[in-house]
């Protein structure tokens, strides 16, 4: 590996670095747990790395809340998410996804923004954030800002809507309407640790006092080029009572989740296996 590194400390320095290098080949990195491995496998002569690890801007780093949203800085590490009590309490799906990612050593450096921008169909935190209807807050080196729903920000395999001038500053998640939630992240792999999901299912349901589902967010990972938000499965659940879902309704829900799956066969599993597993874990979320 032989690349140049720019390590901005402030947002203006960062935006200048992006602006100044528009005509050059540059990459932006934060935790580097994916990028370093990519760099080792490619020619890096002439590459410029914009290194976010030394940025001190709190907007990129803090987890905060206001009346309507939780805000998570793009440079928040998986470990910082796990250690945040509000995240664990309000969004178990995100807590579990962060906690099931790789290993302690990787969670200590891997960031939320990196997990999103790596655009893997098996991205753990990304799947949870899609189920939570997260929005990306994006800035560019001309001083513009925009917001985009994460599910539309991801455009395809390894593709996002980001231009060469842009990067994600932070992510917001709408606050829960209700304290009554059923939320979790199911990750199926061949072992528990250091695993990339063969299939994953992120679900976040909110119920009223009587158990009627008022919000359903379900996303499935590693079964399609992107991580789909399963709208028709979510609509099917909304309005039903969580305590009163029949076996045939569970099957119908699982079928609807499955309709979003278009998996490939690869070294980790066959397409048939992925579909079977997705169908089965979808049915079982009500038992958990």
């Amino acid at each position: 590996m032989n690349f140049d590194v720019i390590s901005p400390k402030t947002t203006p320095e960062l935006l200048n670095a992006i602006y100044d290098n528009q005509s050059k080949n540059f990459r932006i990195g934060a935790g580097f747990t994916d990028l370093i491995n990519q760099f080792k496998a490619q020619e890096t002569e002439g590459l410029i790395l914009i290194n976010l690890a030394q940025l001190t801007e709190v907007d990129f780093k803090k987890i905060s809340e206001n009346e309507i949203n939780f805000q998570i800085g793009a440079l928040t590490t998986a470990s910082e998410l796990i250690d945040n009590k509000s995240i664990k309490e309000n969004f178990p799906v995100l807590y579990q996804a962060a906690n099931k990612l790789a290993s302690t050593q990787i969670r200590n450096v891997a960031t939320v923004g990196g997990n999103i921008c790596n655009v893997s169909p098996s991205g753990d935190m990304t799947a949870a954030l899609i189920a939570l209807k997260a929005t990306c807050h994006i800035i560019d080196c001309d001083g513009n800002e925009r917001k985009e729903l994460l599910s539309s920000f991801i455009r395809g395999l390894k593709k996002t809507s980001l231009t060469k001038k842009e990067l994600i500053k932070n992510i917001t998640i709408p606050k829960n309407f209700s304290k009554n939630i059923k939320s979790g992240y199911e990750k199926v792999g061949s072992r528990k640790s250091m695993e990339i999901a063969i299939v994953s299912l992120a679900y976040h349901l909110q119920m009223d006092d009587k158990g009627v589902i008022t919000y359903a967010g379900v996303a499935c990972g590693a079964v399609a080029p992107t991580i789909p938000f399963t709208t028709s499965a979510c609509e099917f659940l909304t309005g039903k009572n969580i305590n009163d879902i029949s076996d045939s309704e569970k099957e119908e829900f699982a079928k609807r989740v499955l309709s979003y799956a278009n998996p490939i066969s690869d070294i980790r599993a066959s397409d048939w296996y992925r579909k079977e597993v997705l169908f089965n874990i979808s049915k079982t979320i009500f038992e958990r």
């Binding site: 590194v5 580097f32 370093i36 491995n37 302690t104 050593q105 200590n108 450096v109 250091m194």
Partner: peptide, 21 residues
């Protein structure tokens, strides 16, 4: 970053030194 043999502690956190600039 799979095996952890290169683990060191940076500011109190264990990290893989093979994937850390």
């Amino acid at each position: 970053g799979e095996c952890g043999a290169c683990s060191v502690i940076v500011n109190g956190d264990a990290i893989n030194s093979c994937m850390y600039l």
